[in-house]
Design a protein around this nucleic acid. Structure first.
Length: 482
RNA sequence: GCCCCCAUCGUCUAGAGGCCUAGGACAACACCCUUUCACGGUGUAGACAGCGAUUCGAAUUCGCUUGGGGGUACCA
């Protein structure tokens, strides 16, 4: 029983990588990692009309950004390629023919109109739809006649009535009555495989041992098992994950905001935080510490302990987690990530070291990388006093600012401690002589220097702005108050 | 309609018959810290969907009801 563990993630390139798919990918990745298995990427593009190269690229990029790189895939190949279904079109008909020969499948000449009619009748009679098997017993002559007319058949799998049971890794025992299924198509009349067929053939040929996917695939599973059995192939283990729902409990879609991983990244979410957050949807760390990297999660991951219910995607915790990652991240790495969000500013006025300092002192309240744009505004732009008009024109500022301006001339700008001490002296001075609260003194100074009442540590701010800029801004503020 | 899945604080979850007067995290609220906003710290409030059954004992097992989700294609 030392068979190799092989899992796969099989997105279809009909959209950008969805956050739900990312979670599925994560769980597959974790399962592979934990069990020393292989994790393969397969692109399911049998529906050529809905698939696009751009989406495929987005899927690659997003998965890579998340750090969920694959052991085998369309771009890097592997022993069981090709890994793109559109490049495997020649292999499906062989297996379909094999099923026909063995009596597990048959050609169906029904047109779309015929089928629609069957659907309508079922609907009118209020009975569950099931294919009529009209084409099941066609004679060779009848089939040849139809083909001579140019009608291309689809191929249907013949479903026999029986109770089908399988043990799901996350849901437990699942039972189905195949009598309810009806003969389903495995090859379309255009010679292309249907999803359920392509999946089975590919998983079989790629030697996938465990299929971990969303629970929207539960009802596909009995069909797929039937095909495996007809083919005489080993049926993989299945595990179905609950879905991610929007706060209104509907499917997470564009109208709820971001759904694609690339959207989240654009909004300023960190991939590590995204991954960590999404892992917590269904999985819980055994030590209670929720902030964990992929390796730590993998070590603690047990597929059968995954919650089998759906979970709602709420932003609050993601935001909190993103903030946690921003606070803890290496400052140089963080700066690299923040800089693109500061493209509207002339960041060249500062050295790299200063930029890192700016990020360092502004990172604390930040939840998204994009927050840095607003939070660092005053380091790159002249302060706008409209927001602090009252403070600057107030009595406190009128007394504090000129005195502060005078004091600034003696600051040692290379020495934060000096600035810190002198500011402290200033606060004490105004408290004793004018009974200004320390808070009021600082507000006046902050307002003049930044145009804000909140922001980074004042000492650091003064130090970063430098003597000339501080002088200039203070004079502007004093004039503004006139 | 039919089939399937799911059901613990607002949300994510811990809990696999007595450790549960149900624990944690986010959010909320209060207080503390503080040169602001925050961060951080300390607290408060907040849930086993309902009903039956099994059992000495049920959040945990079983059944029904209700609610939510998924599927019902020659889409994936």
């Amino acid at each position: 029983m030392s068979e190799e563990i092989r899992v796969r993630i099989a997105p279809s390139p009909s959209g950008n990588l969805h956050i739900g798919t990312a979670r599925t990918a994560l769980f597959n990745y974790l399962f592979a990692k934990k069990n020393n298995g292989k994790y393969v990427l397969r692109i399911e593009d049998t529906d050529l009309d809905r698939s696009s190269e751009a989406f495929k690229q987005n899927i690659f990029d997003s998965l890579k950004a998340l750090g969920l790189s694959w052991d085998e895939g369309p771009d890097i190949g592997g022993p069981y390629g090709p890994y793109k279904q559109s490049q495997r079109f020649d292999i499906y008909p062989k297996y379909a023919q094999m099923l026909i020969d063995k009596g597990y499948a048959y050609e169906c000449f029904c047109s779309n109109e015929d089928l629609e009619k069957e659907h309508e009748i079922a609907k009118e009679k209020k009975i569950p739809y099931k294919y009529s098997r009209k084409c099941l017993n066609l004679t060779k002559e009848e089939k040849d006649a139809l083909k001579a007319k140019g009608i291309k058949p689809s191929i249907r799998f013949k479903v026999d009535a029986k109770e089908l049971i399988f043990n799901d890794m996350v849901k437990g025992e699942l039972k189905f009555d195949t009598n309810l299924i009806g003969d389903f198509a495995i090859m379309k009349s255009n010679g292309t495989p249907t999803y359920n067929f392509a999946v089975v053939i590919d998983d079989m040929l790629m030697k996938i041992s465990h299929v971990i996917r969303g629970e929207d695939h539960i009802s596909n599973t009995p069909k797929q098992i039937l095909i495996y059995e007809a083919l005489g192939a080993k049926v993989p283990q299945f595990g179905h994950l609950g879905m991610i729902l929007a706060p209104d409990r509907s499917k997470l879609s564009k109208r709820h905001g971001a759904t694609a991983v690339s959207d989240f990244i654009k909004q300023g979410y960190l991939t590590d935080a995204l991954l960590n957050f999404v892992a917590l949807l269904g999985w819980a760390p055994s030590d209670g510490n929720e902030i964990k990297n992929v390796d730590e999660i993998a070590a603690d991951f047990r597929i059968n302990e995954i919650s089998s219910s759906n979970s709602i995607f709420e932003y609050e915790k993601l935001n909190w987690m993103n903030g946690q990652y921003i606070k803890k991240m290496d400052i140089s790495k963080l700066t690299d990530l923040v800089l693109p969000f500061l493209k509207n500013y002339n960041t060249s006025i500062y050295s790299r070291k200063q930029l890192e300092h700016i990020i360092e002192v502004t990172r604390e309240p930040v939840t998204l990388l994009s927050d840095f744009e607003n939070d660092t505004y005053y380091f790159f732009n002249e302060p706008d006093y409209t927001e602090v008009d009252e403070i600057i024109k107030g009595d406190v500022a009128k007394i504090v600012l000129p005195k502060f301006l005078e004091q600034v001339q003696n600051y040692d700008f290379d020495n934060e401690e000096d600035i810190h001490d002198k500011l402290g002296e200033l606060r004490s001075y105004f408290k004793e002589n004018h009974s200004f609260k320390p808070k009021e003194t600082m507000w006046a100074i902050r307002s003049a220097l930044t145009g804000r009442t909140r922001g980074a540590d004042m000492v650091a701010t003064i130090q970063i702005l430098g003597k000339d800029e501080a002088n200039k801004r203070l004079k502007t503020a004093i004039n503004y108050a006139q």
